[in-house]
């Protein structure tokens, strides 16, 4: 029997408690095909293994270590280090906090030991490298670096190094984002707007466009042409709500209620963003093919607007940044 479980990964310190709670509420097994139900089931597994990545100071001072450092730099400052593959103002760290190390923020050490895995999004078994390509294509609204390219090799080296000693295939505590139960009150745009104005607009700006400092993206845009595109995981309400609950407001993750997290996720994903790169020529066809799930807002009418028209910028590197940025980024 599977009951939905609330995973409150508000703080690393809260992990131990979360594991105890989870151990009592579900069936074991790590399903390979991910659906909302199987995600809950997976998160509910009693076989959670506790793992902590080594400190950055332990990166070795040799040729391999240099590659690991390259990966870390890419992760933190993706645009500067891989401009040809990035089409927005985000970095990998924008959604995987502490340079991909933070539990509950889809950390890379937990991801490394989870692949290859079947992904319904791609309808095939994806390798870790293919998963990285996916994040470039959708979350970074860019182009996937070719397999074996220096960018992918460095990101793989960094992830592998962080996961050293973690058992392959094990379900690590803090993997991926917290899984929230579906909200009792559904989700609501007006309530989400209130949450956004009270807890998010300070940094992400009332218009969602974030902040540039000395020409560099500082607070990332949460919608619009410089944000993640419609094909990204964050454009799905369940993933966005989980991320927000665990990690936002920055520095105070876990402070929102589940209901607030769902509502504000709906508010953010209720705004236009770059077109899904798999666009099939019409919003309807694209919705049928890729966005038929209960957590999609693409192709739906939200606050009186039909979403999915895109913002006119897809997969480009230069020019996708704020017009008023002092130095055009990516050149």
């Amino acid at each position: 029997m599977t009951r939905p479980c609330t995973l409150h990964l508000s703080r690393i310190a809260g992990l131990a408690a979360a594991i105890v709670v989870l151990a009592g509420c579900g069936r074991p097994g790590v399903p390979k095909q991910e659906t909302a139900a199987s995600r809950n089931e997976r998160a509910a597994s009693p076989h959670l293994v506790v793992f902590a990545p080594p400190p950055l100071s332990e990166i070795p001072d040799d040729a391999f270590g240099a590659e690991v450092r390259h990966g870390e730099a890419l992760f933190r400052n993706t645009l500067a280090n891989a401009p040809q593959y990035v089409g927005n103002s985000l970095t990998c760290q924008s959604c995987h906090l502490d340079a991909g190390r933070l539990a509950g923020s889809a950390p890379m050490w937990a991801a490394w030991v989870s692949y290859p895995a079947y992904r319904s999004k791609d309808r095939r078994v994806d390798t870790f490298a293919a998963r990285l390509q996916g994040c470039f294509r959708y979350s970074m609204n860019g182009k996937p670096p070719p397999l074996g390219s220096p960018v992918l090799v460095a990101l793989e080296a960094y992830s592998y190094w962080m996961a050293k000693g973690a058992p392959t295939g094990a379900l690590l505590a803090g993997a991926r984002y917290p899984v929230l139960p579906r909200p009792a009150q559904g989700w609501n745009y007006a309530r989400g707007k209130t949450v956004y104005e009270q807890h998010c607009a300070l940094c992400h700006s009332p218009d969602g466009q974030g902040l540039l400092v000395d020409g560099k993206p500082w607070f990332p845009p949460v919608w619009g042409s410089r944000s993640y595109n419609w094909g990204a995981g964050m454009a799905r309400l369940d993933l966005a709500a989980g991320f927000i609950k665990g990690n936002m407001p920055l520095g105070n993750g876990g402070s929102l209620t589940d209901q607030q997290a769902w509502d504000v996720a709906y508010y953010i994903d209720g705004h236009e963003r770059p077109q899904d790169p798999r666009y099939l020529g019409s919003i309807l066809a694209t919705r049928e093919a890729f966005h038929a799930g209960p957590f999609d807002t693409y192709g739906r009418s939200v606050d009186g607007r039909l979403l999915g028209a895109g913002t006119g910028t897809t997969g480009t590197t230069t020019g996708a940044h704020g017009k008023r940025a002092t130095k055009p980024a990516g050149t």
Binding site: R11, I12, R76, L97, D98, A99, R101, C203, D214, G251
Partner: peptide, 16 residues
């Protein structure tokens, strides 16, 4: 400059 775990980089909020 980089933060640590749940603590974001101080400069994120306090500026460069």
């Amino acid at each position: 400059l980089h933060g640590s775990g749940a603590v974001p980089a101080c400069v994120t909020c306090h500026g460069p």
